[in-house]
Design a protein around this nucleic acid. Structure first.
Lengths: 221, 221, 221, 221
DNA sequence: GATGAATGAGGATTCATTCAT
DNA sequence: TATGAATGAATCCTCATTCAT
């Protein structure tokens, strides 16, 4: 019993240093390839090549192509969550709606401009009928966040209406985001403005004029 | 209507008639396969199999896979154009905005519900960055139509703003359409309503209160 | 309707001439490779190479490696059946037991010497626990034949005993056959004699001294 | 018995003790994997995983996959030898033949039921033609033992006949053993009886009615 | 026109083995 | 000594496309 692991909790796996780096490297390479050719057309060999490693190495870290996308999606999801969780502060708690929209959407746009794979991943389960299980987790998680936001700002909506509104708003956002990412410089900004206008136009009439701030703080989680 | 071969009793070239039938057969099969697995994952062999012909036959009508999508897109585009060109009549010329939106969008939704490939094709050039040349023709054509409509209803918009508005409205429409197609029955209707609400919310503030009917007739082309 | 096949039953597929030849060629190549390295270690690429065709061609005729083995097994099974069905004639109906054994086993040995793959295929589902479904069909078919023979010569055996006897006799035969095939010339003959001796020694005491000839004729099917 | 390291309290080299344990651990894992998927399909990575160690560790003890099988085979061979060397005692020296067969074969069957890898290893050089060098050592050793036994009980046989008889008996035994291992409970016992009957039927007529006991004692080596 | 055979590069994935740490 | 990362050739199989018949 004593030789199979003397239960020292601080060294479960030390050598992961190199491995952790490789994993990041592979995810970066995958991001690059996914952006270039899309998830479906991306080949694991191409990802490995882009990362400068052999195909076998890739499979030491990921069991298959999908796992790469999933891990990438989760990491970006967390990053985005962190970057976005500071949105609801007292500072913008009672802003007028357009400014509120800026406060919410601008960081999202910025994040996605810095991480264009994210959109590629969201679109990766693109075949409408064939839902790819694992891929949909990302979609579902994001949708849940949107639905949470909506339930804060429009608490009066019934459940099914809320889901539809969330789906629609999410669809609107991602498709607008695609336009934003397709342009650069001032054009990009102009499209960002369009996107926010569209969201405002769609969601504005559905929102409560003044939701309680206590409800808003609940959305911080 | 006249170009779809309404059974002319003369027999100038029966081979071409048969060829036309084969082509339609292949396009139908392609539509089915594209819907099932998406353009990228669709194999020409699968299309030929679905059509009940050999791979060689397929290549007698289309030089490659993309040409199938292009031809399919063009045909559907024409069909949609025909189905939609009757929208602007005196009857709905001066309807209130929401009814006008119904009059414009409902036929489009209906058409896409009957021809779900269309959306698959629009999304077929899925990689945001990598524009696939040929595929984009469809996108460009549709966009031009949207831009035409917008220039009718909002003639005050400058050219670049009009393009952006058109792109945004088109993106909004296609992404909403995806939701519509993903549901059935009353849910589908509800999503259609949501989509129209989004379009109204986005476009409403940009539209002229009363565009001249003469300009409207120009949109029929 | 008339162009999709005017129902002429004599030309369902004509071009199979070349294909049929290829198939035989591939099966021959597979036989060779299976003999050389065994089923498990045989690669489809190696089979294609041996047949002088590209990997893709192989897959035009067989969906996977197992299908090759199955088809090969079935063809050989039929051949053996034909070569063996003439064993029961009046000539040897009432031979003494050892001569009867010669009459039955010698053609089997000869067949297997001419087609050594057969034994390789029988052994192909070799992992004891993991029964490979399709492969077992061959095993089951052969076993059934053995059981049939036994029920003719030893009609008094109960069902479970008959199955066990059949399994044992079959195992004995195949393992002895392996020895036979491993040698050549007079050595081979000597091993064949040993094999028959073993079968006689095992089955002799179980057999009826004089089974009715009517029952024997039933085994010809 | 003395070579299995019966816990000597001195500590000349503890590393080797630990190494010995690792080795046993690895061999046990290999046995498990070989049984589950067969030798050919067993991967060294799978064995290492089953043993709870890294691939590198495995290669610190064995130069390659085959060496694992060889070592495993040798150890089991020794164990079997020990378990079997006590068979020839005065008690059963002059038993009637069937009882003698029980006395010899039953322990072998029992041993193989407890160590099913053994059979897997014997069959591991499965391709009849392609003798795998190292693997055959096991085969040769076992065969030699069988030949020894036969030369005791049938001293009159000429050398080549003896070899053939030994090969045949060995083949018969291993193939019957496979059947035994494939069943459980009373079925297993029934197959064991069948196996012994087959061996008796084959070897019985070849054995001397009363071999000298001095010769028997020679078989103990 | 139609067929189906042929191609061969490329896809995901595995595996025995080696090596830096 | 143990680890786990690294390798790269080899595995099965697919696919867009071509070609002889």
């Amino acid at each position: 019993m004593s030789d199979t692991k003397p239960a020292e909790p601080e060294k479960p796996r030390r050598r992961q240093a190199r491995g952790e780096r490789r994993m990041a490297q592979l995810l970066e390479a995958a991001a690059s390839v996914f952006c270039k050719v899309g998830y479906t057309s991306a080949s694991t060999n191409a990802i490995a090549r882009e990362a400068g490693v052999s195909p076998g190495t890739l499979y030491q870290f990921f069991p298959n192509k999908e796992a790469i996308a999933v891990e990438l999606g989760e990491r970006l999801s967390h990053q985005m969550h962190e970057a976005h969780s500071q949105v609801f502060t007292e500072a913008n708690a009672s802003l007028p709606l357009p400014d509120m929209m800026d406060a919410i959407v601008d960081p999202l746009i910025e994040f996605n401009c810095r991480n264009p794979v994210f959109l590629a991943l969201i679109h990766s389960s693109d075949v409408p009928g064939k839902v790819v299980e694992e891929h949909d987790a990302l979609h579902a998680a994001l949708l849940a966040r949107v639905e949470g936001l909506i339930s804060v700002f429009a608490p009066g909506l019934p459940a099914d209406g809320r889901t539809r509104t969330a789906e629609m708003a999410f669809a609107l956002f991602t498709s607008g985001l695609e336009l934003v990412l397709a342009h650069e410089g001032t054009e990009r900004d102009a499209y960002a403005a369009e996107l926010k206008a569209a969201l405002l136009g769609y969601l504005g009439p559905r929102l409560d004029p003044d939701p309680a701030s206590s409800q808003r703080s609940a959305a911080r989680s």
